[in-house]
Amino acid sequence: MAAFYLALWGLAGLLGASAIAALVWAIRRGEFDQLREASQSIFDDEEPVGKVTDRFPDKRF
């Protein structure tokens, strides 16, 4: 049982450490720099910003 706990704690620590490492790496690489572009990424020329894409199926509102 002790080995089981040791393994779990080790795993938890390892994962926690790698999460922090990945975060640091991502920030350094500038992954969080182009946020405006990211928010625009769901639009394109055919469904651009400003175009409404859903409405009731008939004309009577």
Partner: peptide, 19 residues
């Protein structure tokens, strides 16, 4: 997060906040 901007045709107000 996908459908509100997509339906009204306006990007999400603050992308920082969403992260």
């Amino acid at each position: 997060y996908y459908l509100i901007p997509k339906v009204i045709g306006r990007p999400v107000h603050s992308y920082h906040l969403s992260l």
